[in-house]
Each structure stands twice: as structure tokens, then as C-alpha cells.
Design a protein around this nucleic acid. Structure first.
Lengths: 344, 344
DNA sequence: GTGAAAGCGCTAACAC
DNA sequence: GTGTTAGCGCTTTCAC
């Protein structure tokens, strides 16, 4: 056979080993910062790696050890709150070998499971689940296969995985207290449509608990009104319209997330209502558009960046071997804007 | 050695082969719909796969053939336009074996290259690049390593990769024509800050070309004003404020993307300007919040879903072997709302 | 139409 | 401290 001028050969761990005059095992150890390599050897290997532009082949790594890839599962891409979380994750992973890769489930439990499987098939070292719709036993099952950290899903009992949350009950309490202090009495809570698996693990349920307790505390138990609506524009707007056209409409609506609040604001505009004169509106997540003058939406800041950062930190700890579950909780804070402040 | 009750063994292609009473090669062929398997054998294998709940190990596949994973690279997660594109991609991949995995570059060319490398290391079969900041020669280099399709990056010359775009010049033309017809004469264009690699490949540049031509066409050459601003809230608002506080402010601002338009709207509100009485505002992408009553933003719909769908289709064709470049172009359409219609 | 077997690039025992 | 080597689960010739 004549030697055909072969197209550039892939640089493998073997190429590096030859170039540095060491064994493949030595190179592998350097790559993983494993125990038992001299500084001299490490130096030579690193020089060769740089010289040859070697990059580890993730699939090959995945066959034996880690892929240094973390899955990040989001419910959707329309809510900018998830962008904040991603920023936090990126910050945490900055100077590590880990690379996050995103999947989007479209808020469907079926798709979510399929994506988890897909990520497990692809040998992700761990997964961060954001706002999961899965029931707790399903999550336990997943956790037994692959390390997971769950954001925005409250631990009930002692689940076998880490969780990262803001204190949703407190968040809701802050909202009610703020509204009551501003003189509003008929505060309604516009929550998410309940799936088959409604439970206390859901952030919206926690917020409802906080809302009810705070209303009670304020002596407004009789004014408690909770409405559940879907995520689409139409569903949210219909729900808002129905509430506002009722015989005794609320004078304030607390929405479980900002973009629902924007839909409510839109309906209020359409109906010729003055915000906050006729109706106060509060959101949750304090996403960027709350600040726009046309929205000026009071909202609860739960610091998505911190949530993401902590989740990434916990996940890596898990991957490195921790088995004891940890539960991190952020304290939310209310950011007041014109939508609840008649004066401004 | 005593047989320890071993923990559940992974179901591999070998397990399936044994169960079905065939060879591993046969199973592999069934998995990939490869040529040369009888229907009977295929049936038996598929039954065993279902029975055992076998799932192919992506890393192992990646070592020899495909991983059936497509990378989707986005500039950021704040602009909901990218969510539309993802929906289109998902639709196209619905009933295929391919799974999309997302990366977010934060609009930085450096991060973008790093992510492309990361995806290549992870043996993605191909990558869809959305709104890439990379110069064309860099893209060519990437394309020679791995199949790519580029969304929102115009082909100049005959690049060696597929592109999917809307007709940005036409989109800008539609905007100017619409505004002129409504009586606006001082139409300014608020564009993106130019990076080091400004070029005709960028969608904002194409829109600028269309804008200039249309203004000229309308006999308004003297009123042409182009401003470049960064993506942050502060930068966008500062730029808008400067434009509007000038001696001869524009009576209409065409923004290169919706969320910049929302910032301009916010500034207008703050300054006490009436929209559209004192100032008309137009965005691009027709994202969901254009419809909200508080925004009512006229925008250009470039149909992100179609862009995503076509990109996925083209990428799979590429992966399957096509080498001739294709360039798909969507015709944009203007969606008029209150922000440009004094009457309504 | 079907199966045996080589080998993809890496990690981790284990030997030296 | 360093090197040798056996596989990980799959795809893909190449015999049969």
C-alpha cells in the first residue's frame, strides 16, 4: 500500500504521550489532576498538550469516567428568569472543566423525562432540574441513577437529592404585607394551573400557603381568592379578564410570575383601568422588564443568579461523592415599583 | 468466587442480542435502520429492545459513529425570539432520533468559539449557530470540522455552509414604507453596536442597507440617522435618550430588535412623550410582548419557527452527506400595532 | 442475510 | 512515580 497523504490525524492521548515521551496513563493522570505525577512530568505533558492543541474526546471519556458535562433542564425559554439562573451556573463553572448544556422541556412532564433520559444516555455527570413538574417519587428514581440538584421544587420529607429554593412562603407574605400597607384589601392570587401532580413541592403551592397565611394574619381571610390559569397568553388574559369583570373584582392581583403579571397589566390597560389606582399588580422573579416604565411592576426578587450558582456548586459536590442531601434557601426581597404605589 | 447478587447490570447491545438470539451486529443494524436485515430479524430485535428497555449508550456510539445529538448555539436567553427558533427546531426533530442540546454564548465571540469546541469535543453530529458573531473565515474553519447551519448570518460570496435568514433588507424597507405612509419623516435606525467584525454578513447591517435605500427611495435621504448601541438596558436607554433630547429629534425610531424597542418605549414614557403622537417605535422579531397593550409594538415578523425548522432540516441533510451549500430565505412581514398608528 | 471480530480514545487496575 | 494493559458499548468491515 502506498502511503496516501492522510488527512490530519486526530490528536489523541497517545499522540501526546509520544510527544512528551511518557505513557498514556501519565497523560490521563495529568488531565484529571489525579494523584501520583511528578511536577516535571506534569510540566512536560502540559507543554505537549498545548503544543499539539490536544482536546480530550468526551465520548471516549464517557465510556470509562466522566464527561465533564452538566445538564441544565429548563421548563421554557420565554421566561427570562431562567436566563438569570444560567448566568449563576456559568459563574460557578467558570474556571472548572465542566460545561453546561441546556435542554428545554416546554413545561411538560413527559418531555422532561425524555430529556432526562437523553441526558443520561449522553453520560452527563449530573443534571440541574429547574422548576420540575415531576412528582417526588419520579425524582427519587432519577436521583438514584444520576446526581441531580433541583431548583424551585421544595423538599418535603427528606428526599435523596439536593434542592435550591427561595423562601416562597416568605415571598408571598412580603407581597401581601406590602399591598396591605399600601391600602389594598382585596388581594387575589393568580397561580399556575395545577397539573396532575399538584403538591406542596411546587413553588406556586408554597406561595399560595404564604399568601393565605398572610391574608389571614391581616384579618382579610374573607377576601382570599385564588385563581389558577395556564401559561399561554390567552389563558392568562382570560383568567384576568374574568377576575376583573366579576361583581366584586379584586383591587390587587398577585401573579405567580412576572410574565403573567404583564398579561394582567395588558388586560387592565385594555379595560381602561388605572394601575395602581383601580388595580395593583405584583409579579415574582423581578425579571428585567419589570423596570420598564410601561410596566413598572412591583416584584419579588429571588435572585436567580444565586440559585444557579448554588445549584452548580452542590451538583459538583454530589458528583465528587457527597451523598448527604443539602437544601439551600435564598431569602427573597420585594422590589416596589409604580404598579403598587399610587403616589409615585 | 461467590456470585455476589450484582446490582442491575446495564442493558447493552449484547444483552439485546442474546435475548433476541442474534448477533450484536444485527442489533446495531436495526438500531440504525441500516441495510441488510430481514423483517423477521428486525421484529425480534425490536421486541427485545422494548422488553429490556434498552437505550443506546451515546458515548459508545460517539466513538464510532453518530451521537444523534445536535448543538444549538444561542447568543443569549433574554430575547424570546430564540425560543421561537427552538420551537421550530423541536418540531423538525420531533419524530427523529436526534436530540437538540443548547449552549448560550452571551453574545461573545470568544465564548462562542469555546462552546463550538465543547460541542465538537462532545461529538455532536452538527451545530446550528444562531446570530453568530464570528467572522466568515472562522465559520468556514468550523464548517470544515463539523457540519453547521447558520441562522441570521448572511452568506456573502459562496460560503461552505448552509444559511437560513429572513430578508433583512426587505424587512427594513417594509418598516420605512410603513412609517412614511403614516406620515413620519424623521425615521432613525437604532442598531447594534458594531463589534470588531462588522460586515455585511450581520443582520443589523443588512437592515441598515435596507433602511438607507428605502429612505432614499422616499426622498428622505437627508433625514437618515443611524445610531449604534450596546445590548444592556443602560446602553440602549442612554442611546435613546440622547437621540430624543437632541435639537432635531427623530419622530420615529426603528429598533433592530424588539427588546431594544421596549427600552426606547420606556424612555419615551419617562420623558412624557406620546407614542405614537410624538414618537413612533418599531421593533423586529414580533416576539410575544409586542402584543401586550402597554407595548402595542409594531414589529417585523421573521417567523423564528420557520427559521428553526428549516435549519434543522438542512443540518440533517448535511449530516447525511450533502456537501452543496443551501441558503434559505424567509420573507418577513410587518405587523402593525398602536406604536405606529396615531389613529388606533 | 447474518455473525465474528477489530478497534474507536480513554480510565483505572495493577505491575514494576 | 511511572508504564502496561484490559476493557467500556458500540459500529463496521469482511467472511460466510
Amino acid at each position: 500500500m502506498v502511503a496516501i497523504p492522510t488527512q490530519k490525524q486526530r490528536v489523541t492521548i497517545r499522540t501526546v504521550a509520544e510527544d512528551a515521551g511518557v505513557s498514556v496513563a501519565a497523560v490521563s493522570k495529568v488531565l484529571r489532576d489525579a494523584y501520583g505525577v511528578s511536577d516535571a512530568l506534569r510540566g512536560r505533558v502540559q507543554a505537549s498538550i498545548a503544543k499539539l492543541g490536544y482536546r480530550p474526546h468526551a465520548a471516549a471519556r464517557g465510556m470509562r469516567g466522566q464527561t465533564y458535562t452538566l445538564g441544565l433542564l429548563m421548563p421554557d425559554l420565554h421566561n427570562p428568569f431562567f436566563a438569570d439562573i444560567l448566568e449563576g451556573v456559568n459563574t460557578a463553572l467558570q474556571r472548572s472543566q465542566y460545561q453546561p448544556l441546556l435542554g428545554v422541556s416546554d413545561s411538560a412532564a413527559g418531555t422532561e423525562l425524555a430529556l432526562i433520559d437523553a441526558m443520561a444516555d449522553r453520560q452527563m455527570d449530573g443534571i440541574i432540574l429547574i422548576g420540575s413538574r415531576l412528582p417526588i417519587n419520579e425524582l427519587e428514581r432519577v436521583a438514584s441513577r444520576i446526581p441531580i440538584v433541583v431548583i424551585a421544587h421544595h423538599p418535603i420529607g427528606e428526599p435523596d437529592f439536593d434542592t435550591v429554593n427561595n423562601d416562597d412562603r416568605l415571598g408571598a407574605t412580603l407581597v401581601v404585607q406590602h399591598l396591605v400597607a399600601a391600602g389594598f384589601k382585596h388581594v387575589a392570587y393568580l397561580s399556575q394551573e395545577l397539573g396532575a401532580h399538584n403538591s406542596d413541592t411546587m413553588v406556586t403551592t408554597q406561595r399560595e400557603i404564604g399568601y393565605r397565611a398572610a391574608m389571614h394574619e391581616a384579618g382579610l381571610s374573607r377576601n382570599i381568592q385564588v385563581v389558577h390559569a395556564g401559561q399561554t397568553s390567552r389563558e392568562a388574559q382570560n383568567a384576568a379578564r374574568q377576575m376583573l369583570e366579576a361583581r366584586h373584582p379584586p383591587d390587587a392581583i398577585f401573579c405567580w410570575t412576572d410574565f403573567i403579571a404583564l398579561e394582567v397589566l395588558s388586560v387592565a390597560r385594555d379595560m381602561g383601568l388605572d394601575v395602581p389606582g383601580d388595580l395593583a399588580i405584583v409579579g415574582y422573579d423581578n425579571t428585567w422588564y419589570c423596570d420598564l416604565a410601561q410596566n413598572a411592576l412591583t416584584s419579588i426578587d429571588q435572585s436567580g443568579q444565586v440559585l444557579g450558582l448554588q445549584a452548580a456548586r452542590l451538583l459538583i459536590e454530589r458528583i465528587k461523592g457527597r451523598t448527604q442531601a443539602e437544601h439551600y434557601v435564598v431569602t427573597p426581597r420585594l422590589v416596589a415599583r409604580r404598579s403598587t404605589q399610587p403616589g409615585s
